[in-house]
């Protein structure tokens, strides 16, 4: 029986996946106000707006009905692709489905702190009030020897390998979805909360807020492991994520 099953050509397989996703937390339901703010953001960091998928979080809004279609249109006009809605009332859920978007239940069960880790130093109170926890920069591909990829604000996410002789820097944390073989520097402006995360540790150098460890100083048992690096009492603390 099982042989027959195997032989049947399968068109797809379902796989669980954790993808980095930007959540756009709405504090206003007015499409015009959203439009005005997006236009400003696009001019600040055009690289971010490359048909970036976003989840519209409406948890903070108290309105039973939303002009969801218009909000989506505004997003698309600024090269953000809404893929799902999180939270909201039943009519909001229904209209999300009608628009072909997914719907996630509100996130109340999870601790708020996880969501509100300050990822970027907000330059002005106005931005601070509305900033969604966005990533400073996402780099896809291999960072090669001699290349330097930096996120002067916020976190740096590298989807790929960081090779020997390459350097990745961020004002916030550095996340490497791949082997980290080069140098990684987090908290370059002194953020002591920043961390370094990677799937495979071979780093030449790890540094957080000016404190560093060289490859030589790293416990060999941690090499090739998925790890997180955090600052504790001015010491880099490396722990396995496995």
């Amino acid at each position: 029986m099982s042989l027959n099953m195997d032989r049947a050509a399968s068109a797809f397989t379902f796989k669980g996946g954790m993808l980095p996703m930007t959540v756009m937390e709405l504090t206003s339901a007015d499409p015009e106000q959203i439009r005005a703010q997006l236009a400003g953001k696009v001019s600040q960091s055009p690289a971010f707006f490359q048909h970036t998928p976003v989840v519209l979080s409406v948890e903070r809004l108290d309105e039973p009905h939303l002009a969801l279609e218009r909000i989506c249109a505004v997003c698309r006009a600024h090269k953000l692709l809404p893929v799902a809605v999180r939270g909201g009332t039943d009519p909001v859920k229904q209209s999300a489905w009608a628009l072909g978007l997914g719907w996630f239940p509100p996130q109340e069960a999870r601790p708020r702190a996880v969501e509100e880790v300050p990822l970027a130093d907000a330059p002005s109170p106005e931005v601070e009030a509305t900033a969604s926890p966005t990533v400073g920069r996402i780099y896809r591909g291999t960072v090669r020897s001699g290349q330097q990829i930096s996120a002067p604000e916020g976190d740096l996410v590298v989807v790929g390998a960081v090779n020997p002789g390459a350097e990745v820097l961020a004002a916030g944390s550095v996340h490497v979805y791949g082997p980290l073989r080069g140098r990684a520097l987090g908290g370059i402006h002194g953020d002591r909360q920043a961390g370094i995360f990677c799937q495979e540790l071979h780093a030449e150098l790890l540094s957080l807020a000016g404190n560093y460890k060289r490859l030589e100083d790293i416990d060999p048992r941690l090499l090739s492991q998925p790890v997180q690096v955090q600052l504790r009492d001015d010491q880099l603390n490396i722990s396995s994520l496995g």
């Binding site: 291999t142 090669r144 020897s145 001699g146 290349q147 090779n163 020997p164 002789g165 390459a166």
Partner: peptide
């Protein structure tokens, strides 16, 4: 290998 990696970076930029 390291030098080739460097060259690949230049090819991309």
């Amino acid at each position: 290998v390291r030098d080739s990696d460097r060259i690949l970076g230049l090819l991309a930029s």
